[in-house]
């Protein structure tokens, strides 16, 4: 095999993923932009004016980081889960499995593909948010790092969902019944300081709460959580999910009979 064959295989998977979501941009890039644009208009602009301040910021400013993060999380996850499951469903995943591509290359290819869509939608949403709020990023390093790590976590989670999925219903259950509630309860629209102690404690168990607040810290310079703890949680999740994916691929779960 050629000297840089693994890189070529990785690049092939990534470009194929980008081509896929680029080809169906009306389904992948436009709807989240419209949905989150509506959040800005309704919650940020109309309702937000009556709310006033949240966590020391105008309500519109407060929700912008959370909504950008929501777009990144949902799209990183859904790109990987829908793409990999489609490959399984059409059996085109066999093209990859019979080729000399190591499992970690397959996994990294799909993760970066998922990140590409998550970040593309995140960028679109960021531009839309600029129509409603003046964003001044307080800490670029934290902002970029947390969005990249979060995107990796949810791309990995989407990959596991796709491995176990046997039908198209199986790839919508987790986003609908787990991911969306966790995002909404992760402090996107409110500060955790408003909650009574019990719900504050429950929020602390929600990993998305840490991601949203760290991202908010990067943009606004204020957060409900200790960002060191947030980065630690993100790294732990990445290690656990990546290891799980590799073990599942090695075992052939959902792929080999």
């Amino acid at each position: 095999m050629f000297s840089n064959h693994k890189y070529i295989a990785f690049e092939t998977i990534v470009l194929r993923e980008i081509r896929r979501f680029g080809r169906i941009w009306l389904q992948t890039l436009v709807p989240p932009a419209i949905t989150i644009g509506l959040y800005f208009v309704i919650f940020g602009n109309l309702v937000g004016k009556r709310i006033g301040e949240m966590g020391g910021f105008q309500y519109m400013e407060f929700i912008v980081p959370g909504l950008i993060m929501m777009a990144v999380i949902q799209n990183s996850y859904s790109n990987v889960v829908s793409s990999f499951f489609s490959h399984k469903f059409q059996h085109s995943v066999e093209e990859l499995l019979v080729a000399p591509v190591p499992n970690y290359v397959i996994l990294c290819g799909f993760i970066v593909g998922g990140m590409a869509r998550g970040l593309a939608v995140g960028t679109i949403v960021t531009f839309i948010s600029m129509l409603f709020a003046d964003l001044e990023i307080q800490n670029l390093f934290i902002t970029v790092t947390v969005v990249l790590l979060t995107s990796i976590v949810f791309a990995l989670a989407g990959f596991i969902n796709a491995l176990f999925a046997n039908s198209f219903d199986d790839i919508s259950i987790i986003p609908t019944f787990v991911l969306t509630p966790l995002i909404y309860l992760g402090g996107v629209f409110y500060s955790v300081e408003l909650l009574p102690p019990f719900w504050k404690f429950v929020s602390a168990l929600n990993p998305i709460f840490y991601m949203v607040n760290t991202f908010r810290y990067g943009i606004l310079g204020s957060s409900d959580v200790d960002i060191r703890w947030a980065f630690f949680i993100l790294c732990v999740f990445i290690v656990l999910l990546f290891t799980s994916c590799i073990l599942l691929l090695r075992k052939g779960t959902g792929l080999r009979s």
């Binding site: 295989a9 690049e11 081509r19 059409q90 085109s92």
Partner: peptide
């Protein structure tokens, strides 16, 4: 067992990429 949404040339090129 190839994607029915991809172009013929892309399917072969992608496979070549998998083989490095």
């Amino acid at each position: 067992n190839f994607s029915l949404f991809e172009k013929v040339g892309d399917i072969v090129m992608t496979q070549a990429g998998y083989y490095g």
